[in-house]
Amino acid sequence: MTTTKNKTALITGGSRGLGRDMAINLAKKGIDVVLTYHSNKVKADEVIAEIESEGQKGIALQLDTGDVNSFDSFFARLGPELKEQTGSPGFDFLINNAGTALYAPFAETTEAQFDEIFNIHLRGVFFLTQKALSFMNDGGRIINISSGLARFSFPGSSAYGSMKGAVEVLTRYLAKELGPRGIAANVVAPGAIETDFGGGRVRDDKEINRHVAGVTALGRAGLPEDIGGLVAFLCTEEARWINGQRIEASGGMML
């Protein structure tokens, strides 16, 4: 297995769920990890301990990815932290993973709900990536986390699915415009995964879990470990020629 040495990844929302598994899998590839967390520093520090147990450096920083006005101060903190920990203020991989769920019928979705989802899943991704560019090393990778809900539709996810669809289009533009710097941009779109996302619906509601399993070719709902390894792979040299692509990891949902 080829490992990537002396590279650093920034993962938003890395303290739990899919982000946690991504962080650990990146560390196993020999990649140092900066992760952001919204409020649970204890969980974030637990992930840092796991990263360090793999022999890699880890940094946890608080960030609200829905608050664009906080991004300048975030990067002002990140640069010196990276310089101290890794010897360089730059990083190589940006994984836009942080997000929250919204389950509301289209006819009942409020402007406040829409704005919150927009700020986290599209506005935040757009401008965090924009501000990250001056810190990213040439030849790096951007991985945006989308959802199977951008391809298939379940009632109650119109706002969330729409934002993820927009991120998928944005990713193709990133791949096109950042190509001269050797920066590749791709989308990973998980299907329904058993985490605490959205209150743990897929994990804890037996009826929902059974329904997901029934519409999935491999016959079960996804697990965090079904996603983290894919994201880590996209940060390796073996994946260097993958660019501008949407990779769905759903076990074959709704085929």
Rank of each mutant, 00 (worst) to 15 (best):
Y160M: 02
E194V: 05
V188A: 06
V188T: 06
I193C: 04
E168D: 14
G191V: 11
V188G: 05
S162V: 06
G165K: 05
L178C: 03
E194G: 09
V188R: 07
A184C: 14
N186K: 13
T171C: 14
A192S: 15
A159I: 10
V187P: 03
P180D: 10
Y160P: 00
I193G: 00
V187I: 15
V169R: 10
E194S: 13
P190N: 07
G161N: 06
I193L: 03
I193H: 02
P190F: 04
G165H: 03
A159G: 01
A189H: 09
G161L: 07
P190W: 02
V167Y: 05
G165R: 04
T195M: 05
L170H: 02
G182R: 10
A184P: 02
E168W: 08
A159K: 03
V188H: 08
E194C: 14
S162Q: 02
T171Y: 10
P190E: 05
A166W: 06
M163D: 00
R172T: 13
R172K: 15
I183A: 00
A175W: 12
R172M: 15
A184S: 14
G165V: 07
P180Y: 11
E168M: 14
L178G: 01
S162Y: 05
G191Y: 04
K164H: 03
A189P: 11
L170C: 03
P180G: 07
A159T: 14
L170E: 03
R172I: 09
R181I: 04
I193Q: 00
V169W: 12
M163W: 02
G182A: 04
R181D: 06
Y160D: 01
T195F: 08
V167T: 08
G179L: 13
T195R: 01
A175C: 14
Y173Q: 15
P180H: 04
L178V: 02
K176E: 15
Y160L: 02
G161F: 01
Y173V: 10
A166D: 04
I193K: 02
M163A: 05
L174M: 15
T195L: 09
A175L: 12
Y160G: 00
N186C: 12
A175Y: 13
N186A: 11
G165W: 07
A175T: 14
E168A: 13
A175H: 14
V167H: 08
P190T: 09
N186Y: 07
L174S: 00
G161Q: 06
P190R: 06
I183V: 14
G191L: 07
Y160R: 00
A189S: 15
E177Q: 11
E177F: 10
A159E: 01
R172C: 12
G191M: 10
A175I: 14
A175M: 15
A189R: 08
V169A: 13
G165N: 04
T195D: 02
Y160I: 01
L178I: 04
V167M: 09
A184G: 14
A159R: 00
A166H: 06
R172S: 13
G182F: 08
K176R: 15
R172Q: 15
G179F: 08
R181C: 05
L170Y: 12
